[in-house]
Design a protein around this nucleic acid. Structure first.
Length: 275
DNA sequence: ACCCAGGGGCAAG
DNA sequence: CTTGCCCATGGG
């Protein structure tokens, strides 16, 4: 293991915040796969122990270059955002490989974080390429998933998401949607492109834009964020929740959203059923 | 036995 | 343009 000096960072918080779903706890550290590279990371005080040779990949993946101080300075000044920031300091919005992020969030629809994780690990184990030095396989490429039957995908617990994952894998494999080309597009057009894929609507497209395309102002609105924004607004009439979030959360709205999401989920103080 | 989960898509109003 | 309903599965 080599040592990486660290800016403000909380590895555990970052890995448990519902952006990525395959990392496994290993003693005081974590084992995972970044693309096709097996990695072990362990956080000490002010530094990160990293598998030798993976330093660059790791610092890019965990976005250690994001200027957290500047980002925090843009957070809105209300009790919810302040509370989320106090609870989640050091959480970073990471940079994930595009396809595995897209595919994973297609399987995330109406699923709890723990189960998204189970599906992701099952898909990797059954269809992914084994990675030397890792007991977690690479996420299966679109070309591979395109050749898997819907019935086999269902054995990984995908349920009604199975045909969507399969159809999206086929579309990406044959190039009708080009995931690399999307990186060069302005955000609204990039979102439009992603939404052409079966099983991808606004929420999942925004997850992919935020976690795989460095669009730190993209705001995925799920049931938790909906609750938080409603609580922020009181009983007044509701605007479009995504518009409201982008306008009030600032230039790094996606970061604010991620902190609010994770804080709400771990503290569970919000009413589940309020409309 | 319920209720809920990082939704999407399509029909109907 | 909005709302209602179904899609399948596991956990609390």
């Amino acid at each position: 293991m080599t040592v990486l000096p660290l800016p403000e960072f909380d590895l555990r918080l970052t890995l448990l915040s519902g952006q990525v779903f395959h990392w496994q706890e290993d003693g005081a550290g974590w084992r995972g796969v970044i693309g096709r590279t097996a990695v072990r990371v362990e956080q000490m005080a002010g530094e990160l122990m990293v598998t030798p040779g993976a330093e660059k990949i790791v610092s890019r993946y965990f976005a250690l270059d994001h200027p957290l101080d500047q980002i925090y300075a843009t957070f809105p000044d209300d009790e919810f955002s302040r509370g989320a920031l106090a609870a989640c300091r050091g959480l970073r919005v990471i940079r994930q490989p595009r396809w595995e992020c897209l595919a994973t969030f297609i399987t995330s629809a109406m699923k709890q974080v723990s189960h998204i994780r189970a599906m992701s690990l099952a898909l990797r184990a059954r269809f992914g390429d084994p990675i030397e030095g890792s007991d977690v396989a690479a996420y299966p490429e679109p070309e591979r998933l395109a050749r898997v039957t819907e019935a086999k995908l269902r054995t990984c617990g995908l349920g009604f998401r199975a045909p969507n994952l399969r159809a999206t894998a086929i579309a990406v494999a044959k190039g009708s949607v080009d995931l690399e080309a999307i990186a060069g597009m302005e955000t609204d057009r990039a979102r439009e492109e992603l939404c052409k894929l079966p099983g991808v609507g606004r929420k999942i497209a925004n997850c992919v834009l935020l976690f795989a395309y460095e669009r730190l102002d993209a705001v995925p609105v799920d049931v938790w964020i909906a609750r938080v924004v409603r609580a922020m607004r009181g009983d007044g009439r509701l605007p479009d929740l995504e518009d409201y979030s982008r306008e009030h959360f600032g230039a790094y709205a996606g970061y604010v959203q991620q902190y609010l999401f994770h804080h709400a989920r771990i503290s569970k103080t919000l009413p589940a059923r309020s409309k």
